[in-house]
């Protein structure tokens, strides 16, 4: 039996899991819920946020969070498909990791355009 290449997506999955558990809930609160209920006043206005994300360090951090979360979700869906009895791991992998790759590329493009 050969060593499995599953180590690579698993690393992204594990890192993404940590990011999702610790950072994503706070991100959702700060960018989604807090402005909606009027917290922080103008600090979260479009102009302020746009300038904030324009910083290269912030771009890099955002890239890390979004890309890792996407690969985590992809690997989770691959495992779910197996659990649901879908016996086509190759095809499922191509679809879910393909989507994660597209999401990663789109994130890079979006961040570069800011």
């Amino acid at each position: 039996m050969a060593r499995s290449a599953k180590a690579v997506p698993w690393f992204l999955f594990a890192a993404g899991g940590t990011v999702i558990a610790f950072i994503l809930p706070v991100m959702i609160f700060i960018t989604g819920i807090a402005p909606a209920i009027g917290l922080f006043g103008d600090a979260l206005s479009y102009e302020t946020m746009h300038a904030f994300v324009g910083n290269w360090l912030i771009k890099l951090i955002l890239l890390g969070i979004i890309v890792l979360a996407a690969w985590h979700a992809a690997h989770r869906l691959r495992v779910c498909a197996h659990d649901f009895g879908i016996r086509a791991d190759g095809a499922v992998s191509i679809v879910v990791y393909g989507l994660a790759a597209i999401a990663s590329a789109a994130t890079v493009v979006a961040l570069l355009m800011i």
Binding site: M1, A2, R3, S4, K6, A7, W10, V79, H82, D83
Partner: peptide, 15 residues
């Protein structure tokens, strides 16, 4: 042990 443990049917089959 690695060729069994770290194979597709080893640890990587665990979800």
């Amino acid at each position: 042990r690695e060729h069994v443990v770290a194979s597709h049917d080893g640890i990587w089959a665990c979800s």
